[in-house]
Nucleic acid binder design. Structure first.
Lengths: 325, 325
DNA sequence: TTGTAAGCGTTATCAT
DNA sequence: ATGATAACGCTTACAA
């Protein structure tokens, strides 16, 4: 395959001139530029970008770490990231980690190996200390609140958002509230559970340990939760459920079993996913798209600044009132 | 940041020896190897992979082109790809194209620029001729049947599969069948519509133009389809719907409106997605996961062979009988 | 406006 | 078993 030297020789110019044409530098006469362009066309030449990356020290690529691409929560954030990356002519390299530290480390190692210019961590199993180590090799941003670390973050205050959701339910008069939690190891799940238990205690609400249902991540988990709810001697008046798709599964199964919603059971979802609109689920909009977009904008800026300072951006949230509460 | 030269100097060996240690070559004495290893540790050294890519002419990365990551159809294929890529220690670069030719070309250009070793095209808006041009720069495989071209393919016979679905419905006694089609431009949609219309004609089934519903890609589209079905003066006895999530939307909305399924309306889905199991939707399993896995295995083999020949692999399919037909 | 030559950080070749 | 040295294909001082 042709290289820059060959183009230079055939066009009767130096490699520098060819490089200038390639990079749209000024100070190239029209004659030479045309000659170069024509030769390039003729030989079907393109640059070997590996050589460019080597000499420039940049790759124009950013990696994104997330556990599952097929989870709505993450795909919405991903859309935000992708949109901004496109605007900046950047490439996104996706890493579906399944929360495997090993996979996540691999991506951070890519940063170290100079294969990418930065890393966006949407959700991780990694300890903040580990991430912090890698900031030495390039900019990193997380979509989780990890305190004011040496890397940036765009995040939702899960604690406050969850409490607001609970307040909304008690405001509607519900005095016993169950909770379908998402992935047990998920960083947000831990926070939300704390918010939940504290809220229950503060407001002296009724509570049974079986109202706390763990590891609900799919429609089927929601359906299973509905079934176990039905078998309880004491059932909560309301359920708060992270993920509208899980809420959807619960609602469908509960209705199939003859429960009226919100009459017999109120359901509040989280994350404002498309299925939620279909089933008219009352939910919490976490602005996930904007989260992705902001994350990319920040890391892009950091890639291009000399000594970037970490940025901490807190996103807001709001309840979407529909008809399941 | 430290480079190989520095390591060599500090360890008191040549760069060649360092390189040998780095690549686990034989013929390095234990003494020197240990010295090198220790220096590497000490300086926190890693290779600049751009230099490696440049000299070796390989990158260990394969790009995947698909229109939408959040569509179940594609995410299942993606899972198959990802699993195999992991086994082969390959990196996957994801391109969400939205069926924009421009975006897809960008990826093919990466192949030309030597930034990736191969391309897996899951679904594309590109003409086969264009893809064929790029085979000059490296192996390409599609997950669509495009005839026996200069690039490989793993594909489902959408025509035959769709007809089998229709036969299943007529076998159950339904004599009027409507069809919710997926994305209008989707390559499979075109094929399936042909199969549909031909089947209707061959079997002299009842048919109204309004039973053919276009561009159904989401749960909400399915719900909307249910609503328009309800308004028809003549309603089909059965619906065949590409995508179980679309079928789910239709079923939920239809039942909400008092329709019994399959009593008043039989529904057959396609693609065997998780939601289909929850709602007990009778569907067609297209082996999408296996499709992704096979695609990667083939391209991986081609990357490592001198003069690769195109491979054409046809996948089978089967009906999963549940309770909506 | 143009060209020469020195890198970038590796691996490959070919000695010894 | 080890090491010079030449690639790989490009950008960028620096000189003219």
């Amino acid at each position: 395959m042709a290289n820059i030297k060959e183009i230079a020789r055939m066009a009767g110019v130096s490699v520098t001139t060819v490089s200038r044409v390639l990079n749209n530098h000024p100070y190239v006469s029209k004659d030479k530029r045309d000659a170069v362009l024509q030769t390039i066309e003729q030989l079907d030449y393109t640059r070997n970008m590996n050589a460019v990356h080597l000499i420039t020290g940049r790759t124009g690529a950013v990696a994104v770490i997330l556990p599952y691409i097929h989870a709505f929560y993450f795909s919405i954030i991903m859309n935000g990231l992708a949109h901004e990356a496109l605007l900046s002519q950047y490439r996104l390299i996706l890493c579906q980690s399944n929360y495997l530290e090993e996979e996540e480390i691999k991506v951070l190692e890519m940063l170290r190996h100079k294969e990418i210019d930065g890393v966006v961590i949407v959700s991780t199993a990694l300890k903040p200390e580990i991430i912090e180590e890698y900031t030495a090799y390039g900019p990193i941003i997380t979509c989780q609140d990890s305190g004011e670390r040496r890397y940036s973050s765009v995040y939702i205050e899960h604690y406050a958002a969850f409490k607001q959701g609970l307040e909304y339910l008690t405001g509607k008069g519900y005095r016993s509230i169950g909770y379908c939690e998402g992935r047990r190891n998920g960083s947000s799940a831990v926070i939300r559970q704390t918010a939940y238990r504290e809220f229950i205690a503060e407001h002296q609400l009724a509570f049974e340990e079986e109202w706390m249902i763990y590891d609900c991540t799919t429609e089927e988990d929601g359906a299973a939760a509905a079934l176990s709810l039905l078998k309880m001697s004491q059932r909560p008046e309301a359920m708060i459920i992270t993920g509208d798709h899980v809420a959807a599964g619960l609602i469908i199964e509960a209705r199939r079993s003859g429960l009226s919603i919100p009459g017999d059971l109120a359901v509040m979802g989280f994350d404002n996913q498309p299925i939620g609109r279909l089933l008219q689920i009352t939910t919490m909009d976490n602005h996930l798209y904007e989260m992705g977009a902001a994350a990319f904008r920040i890391i892009h800026e950091q890639i291009h600044s000399e000594r970037p300072e970490p940025v901490y951006r807190k996103l807001d949230y709001r309840i979407i009132e529909r008809s399941t509460v």
